[in-house]
Simulated assay, not measured.
Amino acid sequence: MSDDNKDTAGGQEPREEDAREGGARRERIVGTPSPAKEKALLAEDDISAPAGVGEQLDEASMKRAERVVATLFLVAFASSVTFIAYFIGWSGRDGGMHGVLRARESNFWLGGTMALSFLALAAGVTIWVRRLMTSKPIVQERHELVSDEESRAAFARDFMEGAEDSGITKRPLLRRTLLLAAAPLGLAPLVLLRDLGPLPEKRLRHTYWGEAVRRAQQEGKKGVRLVVDGTHRPLRVSDFATPGSMITVLPEGVEEHVPEDEVLTQNAKAVTILINVPADQFKPAKGRENWHVNGIVAYSKVCTHVGCPAALYEQTTHHILCPCHQSTFDATDAAKVIFGPAARPLPQLPLSVEDGYIIATSDYHEPVGPSFWERG
């Protein structure tokens, strides 16, 4: 067997002379330095290249990088100020940013300005670190947690050297624009406290049912008619005569008597579920014997836990279910809580009949929605 065959059979690497024959690509032998170390991975004129890679930048290039960083910091400052100005001023008109109709616009401007501010600030800091700071290796030794005087003095000395290397002490333009860009971001969380909304005072203690009933009584009627949610069709007793049925209803006349930007808010508080409970299983609460119509009873659809719609109904058990956290209410017994985190029953709406239509004779006698809404 020849020497060449021995090398191949023994699993040895081919010699460099053999690898170069026939124009074959040269294979690097394991253990030899990588040729990539001889090349600079970043171009010297690249604005993102670290100052410590390759040749040290001259002062003109560093000045140019300084102006780029300062410009980015100014962009971050302007974006933060725009965020605060829009949140306080422009979002307060025409119902404000808390209205459903303007949610998309406010999210676009608030999210866009804040994202631009963080992006410009991050880009500025990145260019600062890569172009204006030295990139020498730093070794941190492990010692006891309690530092002696010598270690504290060494830390102070290293800190000052780091500050000197970063250029923050000798480049006031960068220092000032950085502080300017960061100042509005520090104030933004305080401004966002407004997003908690104005104090509700007593507005959550009442729904549009009360106002609608008063208007109907001024016209000589006993109460306001219930209309089907979506079709706004008044509901007759004969339309809802099947036991086990459930439907969502609202007070009649919301669209005609409420400003357009308030319709959704009023409907959200007044939304009600109407349930036909079998008369032999219905157990009206004391003092509420006349609040139902032959077993047809009305409860608030807003769950008393955190405000989710309690929109599921089990005909066999007569249980009202909230799908968010599984709070369960007994429709036959004043919507009392039988399971889940809800702390109190669903408020009940007093019902009656007028000219064959189901009507509400008053507002809810207790606040609707989560218990914390009552804090207003």
Rank of each mutant, 00 (worst) to 15 (best):
P137R: 08
T248C: 04
R233G: 06
L74Q: 02
D195P: 09
K222I: 10
E255P: 07
P189K: 01
I273E: 00
A156D: 05
A36Y: 04
A279E: 13
R67H: 09
T32V: 06
N5H: 03
L57H: 05
I358S: 06
L145H: 11
V337F: 05
H292S: 15
E150R: 04
R194V: 05
F77I: 08
V271C: 10
V53W: 01
L74A: 14
T177Y: 00
G376D: 03
H98K: 12
P323K: 13
R215N: 02
T317E: 11
G307D: 09
V81R: 07
N107E: 10
S327V: 06
L321A: 00
L41C: 10
V368A: 13
N267K: 14
F329T: 02
F118T: 02
A85V: 06
G89C: 04
G52T: 08
P284V: 13
D4N: 03
N294W: 02
Q266A: 05
D4F: 14
P14A: 15
P50L: 02
M114L: 15
V213Q: 15
T207A: 09
Y313L: 10
S2N: 15
I168H: 01
Q281S: 05
G253D: 11
H206I: 14
V293T: 08
M114R: 03
G287V: 10
L42H: 14
P234I: 14
W90V: 15
Y357R: 11
L226N: 09
G22T: 13
L346V: 11
M1Q: 00
H206N: 11
V227C: 06
V224Q: 09
E256P: 02
F83W: 03
R171L: 14
T207C: 06
F108Q: 07
E262P: 03
A115F: 14
A335L: 07
S245M: 08
V69K: 08
G54K: 10
